[in-house]
Amino acid sequence: MIKIPVIKISYDKLLSRLGYFKAKTKIDRKMFCMINEILNFSQKFIIPSVAINFENIINIDNEIVFKNGYKIKSFNVSTLLKNSFGAYGVVVTIGKSLERKRNDFLINKKIFDALILDAVGSVATEEVIKLVYAQIYDCEKEKKNILTKRYSPGYGDWFLEQNMEFVNWVGAEKIGVSLNEHYQMNPEKSVSAIIGVEKLEM
């Protein structure tokens, strides 16, 4: 089952998120130390939570219909799940603490610190969902199933407006994730995704 350990952010992934190009970008010692300082500081603010929901699919056409009646209207998602018998809905978040601290930095015009902290938050959120995916993968592999790639609302024709219903379906309010009227996730550093489960063809 899903276990979320302490999320340690690698310096290299953070650099990559900030636009660093290994072959081209030059960083001096001072910049290295400054980024590392904020990276170490930011670990305190990463508090991951996960909500998952699994449901069997009863029909895939132009829309996917789940057993409990929930529907997703998206050709792209239908294509993704065309061979799936069921799907996981996943919502992850790293909580509000980091973005609160980032906003404090912005108010105090510490743009550099805010930039690094924001990037850490984005990397951390991505790490959490990757971890969840990997654990679901292992779990399903034991049952001789495989997973599709994950797909999030807001991409392709799975319009962001459908994210509200999706996160409700997952039950994300219980981990403190909600959406505003413009479908922006709160906390900001949250990700929702669907992952299809297929039988492994021998």
């Binding site: 650099l15 900030l18 190009f21 081209k24 970008t25 030059k26 743009i111 550099f112 930039l115």
Partner: peptide, 14 residues
């Protein structure tokens, strides 16, 4: 030219 990335721009800008 990708010799500088965003944190360095911020430091220079500030």
């Amino acid at each position: 030219l990708k010799e500088y990335f965003l944190p360095q721009i911020i430091m220079s800008a500030q």
